[in-house]
Amino acid sequence: MLEIKNLVVQIEDKRILNGLNLTVNKGEVAAIMGPNGSGKSTLSYVIAGKEDYEILDGEILLDGQNLLEMEPDQRASAGVFLAFQYPLEIPGVASMTFLKAALNAQRKARGEEELTTPDFIKRVNAAAQQLEIPKDMLKRALNVGFSGGEKKRMEILQMALLQPSFCILDETDSGLDIDALRIVSEGVNALRSPDRAFLVITHYQRLLNHIVPDTVHVMHAGRIVKSGGKELALELEANGYADYRETEAA
């Protein structure tokens, strides 16, 4: 599904990713853990196509397509979804308007028909109910005045609506209390399917109790230094990242 080969990335002359290799298969939930500053968020931005980064080497393939040659919106239509660590506030754009615009843009890009309004509203309401998002929140401007938990739920709502094939969750657990974490995790788990892969980026093991990964990768200094099963996360929780500081990838 997703293949990253020898990715080298810098921003303003500072090397962030340093020959990163990673493969995530269809249906797999892969977790990336690592200390602050190890390059986790950079990785998510580079996959989604944020401009500020300079790609010096390597490639990112999604189902064999080279993502690096595509604009962010093309990547989204190809199935990449990034749940932002800090979702942006867009004053003046109602959440409903935004959701419809995004959904129809992607359908159009894939050569599908635009949704009719009743059909669209039906889908939004179903997803919103599951994520315990009240209707009046959908009428308000996107993320404006939302609490941290509300913003994260809105991200998952978008994921549910847009039905991407490759989802990146960037520190989705940050700023969530236990109830919000449960709601968000349930939302994500409901979307797990054999056709969809997830890349869960997190600093703490906590989230992985709720979204249980198939594989866990440890990231340090811009590359993956260790990979294993879900038990690796528990090991990290117990021993911290210190052990991996000097370790080379297996």
Partner: peptide
């Protein structure tokens, strides 16, 4: 970027932001 990451082409994303503005 946020809008484009959700699939809106650049011009559409610009239009949406201008409309909101």
């Amino acid at each position: 970027f946020y809008l484009m990451a959700r699939g809106l082409p650049k011009k559409d994303a610009e239009s949406l932001l201008v409309q909101a503005f």
